[in-house]
Design a protein around this nucleic acid. Structure first.
Lengths: 229, 229
DNA sequence: CCCTCGAAGATTGTGTGCAAACCTAGGGGC
DNA sequence: GCCCCTAGGTTTGCACACAATCTTCGAGGG
């Protein structure tokens, strides 16, 4: 029973998808008329959408000079991981008492499928990991039943999510990451919130090491212009 | 050398001040034309300001039904304190290695003045505590040098900040709170991040106990209409 | 007496026009 | 040759007007 969305909401959703989906790279200029034509609406709802995306941190908005897709430095990326280390283990701990058998089975299913498509060999599909990983973490966050913490986490994670593919993982780190998911399920099953918290902390630190390494490599090797047509 | 602000920015700032200052109580309806006249601009910049305030969590925005000053339930208030417990002790720990003698002296000065104006007696002035307390915590957050964590904290704290007065503190809790500030300075001076983190955690838990008690008292005793002229 | 339906008023959503600010290219001065 | 300044085009900021939606209030039927 979904009420028909307003134009501004559609523009907001579409733009968010374009940015998060990688169709619009960081630094890309976002002209109002161009977006308006692309989305089939006037400039007004586009402006509203850009305002909101700016508040979300997905675009940078400079008065009289327009909008660009947000960029971030390596320091900011590390900052986001500090934040995740502060929040996600806590959320995981909150999830422990709430996990039903059904939840555990589905989380385990997700973790197993990630191992299947993530293990080296002919069936490896790193792109298929992204939605599975997202589903796993979302499920965990939902299970925590803590909207405020979840919102704070989502707000901070959104911007750099563009980079969230698994091609930057080396074999060792990837194996660790996949094992963490299974271990988190085990900790949930055991009802051990301390264990769950610890594994999640390790999981994020592992990801941080991978991402920071990849980011520094990119920014030091490839100082190319950040423009897209 | 401040570039002249746009109308939307002025509207944003003024509205934020009105809400945070308590001139507009939670639940107050925010008509676009009314605000436009009050601020001397047209509806367009007002709409943009409302959009941003909604993203900040200060106003609630329902399509086709307008904006109201954000309200929050006791559960949400507790959620905010969970978030503070996750972030502020960490920020305090980050501040430890960065604190210079000057910083320590100024923090101690603030803490002492809070004890002076906060102690029972003829000189007690609970309203004077608010800016001092804010200065103390801001100083600490700045010292941590971690914009991402600070932004996450600020975003979550903003909404319920309206309630941040010290009249709801009982004598015992107030004394604890003031002592915590001094103890945090001591921990910083000792360079003991674990100590600093622990005291900050206690500080926030103490505040949570006070606020939650006050909020439940209000909502259970006084189910009055949430309207303001 | 209560519920449902409908119309008038009020409020928000969106398109459009104009003024101001910004970016770029070209010419003149040092 | 380099820098500054100016003129043109482009883009954003804001106001206003109209369309769509919601709210309110009253009349009619059960």
């Amino acid at each position: 029973m979904t009420r028909p969305l307003t134009s501004a909401e559609r523009a907001l959703g579409e733009l968010r998808e374009l940015i998060l989906g990688g169709a619009l790279l960081p630094g890309t200029r976002l002209g109002e008329v161009e977006l308006a034509e692309r989305l089939g609406v006037s400039r007004t709802p586009v402006r509203e959408a850009l305002s909101r995306l700016a508040a979300e941190g997905l675009v940078e908005l400079v008065p009289n000079r327009g909008a660009r897709v947000a960029t971030w430095t390596v320091a900011e990326l590390e900052g986001v991981f500090d934040l995740r280390v502060s929040l996600e283990p806590q959320l995981t701990a909150f999830a422990v008492p709430n996990a039903t058998d059904v939840d555990l089975a589905e989380l385990e299913e997700l973790a197993h499928r990630m191992v299947e498509v993530g293990s080296p060999g002919p069936g490896q599909d790193l792109d298929a990991l992204v939605p599975l990983n997202r589903a796993f973490h979302d499920r965990l966050v939902t299970l925590a039943g803590h909207p405020t913490l979840a919102a704070a986490l989502a707000a901070a994670i959104h911007p750099p999510i563009v980079r969230r593919n698994f091609h930057t993982y080396d074999a060792e780190s990837l194996r660790r990451s996949l094992a963490h998911h299974l271990e988190i399920v085990a900790a949930l099953r055991a009802g051990d919130s301390g264990w769950a918290r610890a594994v999640m902390t390790a999981h994020i630190c592992n990801a941080r090491a991978v991402m920071v390494r990849a980011a520094t490599a990119v920014t030091t090797q490839d100082p190319s212009d950040e423009e897209a047509s």
